[in-house]
Simulated scan of single mutants.
Amino acid sequence: MKSARLFVLCAALLAVTGAAHALEFKSIGPVPAVFYDAPSPKGRKVFVAPRGMPVEVVLTYGEWVKVRDMAGDLSWVQARALVQRRSVVVNAATARVRSAAEEAAPVVFTAEKGVLLDMVDSPVGGWLKVKHRDGQSGFVRVSEVWGE
């Protein structure tokens, strides 16, 4: 009986821990942002992130946010440089953006690796609705982009 309670307690803790580690993404705001190696403007500048670049939020420390970029590199950026509006970046050699969220739908446009797309809606069934800065929109496979 004691081991059964311990098992239930451990399972509950694992469930809470898993929920606490949900990924949070934001994007760089309307102006490029300096990434630092420490949460201070006195830290070493390591990168200038372009506007719209998606980042994964790892930790918030006062006015600073530790972020992970598409390459997996960790840096610090001032919180005011980030916005809630979401972007994704193509991580496949060529992503096919389709007119509907299905493989058989016609291709609206293609996007090469590194192209930034605005996220229009949350992912559904492995597809994400996106919009290119030229105004074209459609659905891309979640596996072909990073930042969602």
Rank of each mutant, 00 (worst) to 15 (best):
P50E: 10
P123Q: 04
R44Y: 08
L59V: 02
Q136N: 06
P50L: 06
V90F: 10
L6C: 05
R133W: 11
V140H: 13
I28L: 07
V89Q: 00
V34A: 11
A105S: 07
W127S: 08
L59A: 01
P32H: 11
V48L: 11
C10L: 01
V55Y: 08
K129Y: 01
A20M: 03
A81C: 12
T110R: 14
V48E: 01
M70A: 15
G114D: 12
R96D: 12
M119P: 00
L82S: 02
Y61G: 00
K129C: 07
V57I: 15
R5N: 15
R96S: 12
A49E: 05
E148F: 03
V57N: 12
V16K: 02
A105F: 01
R141D: 08
S87A: 03
A101Y: 11
R133F: 10
K113C: 09
R86G: 13
P54K: 09
P30I: 06
A79G: 13
Y36V: 03
V108C: 11
D118K: 06
Q84S: 11
Y61A: 01
R98E: 01
P30F: 01
F35A: 00
V108W: 12
G62H: 04
P30D: 12
D118G: 10
A95V: 00
V31M: 01
S99E: 06
P54W: 07
E102Y: 03
P41M: 04
A93H: 14
A12T: 06
E63L: 14
A4M: 14
E103P: 07
F7E: 04
E63T: 12
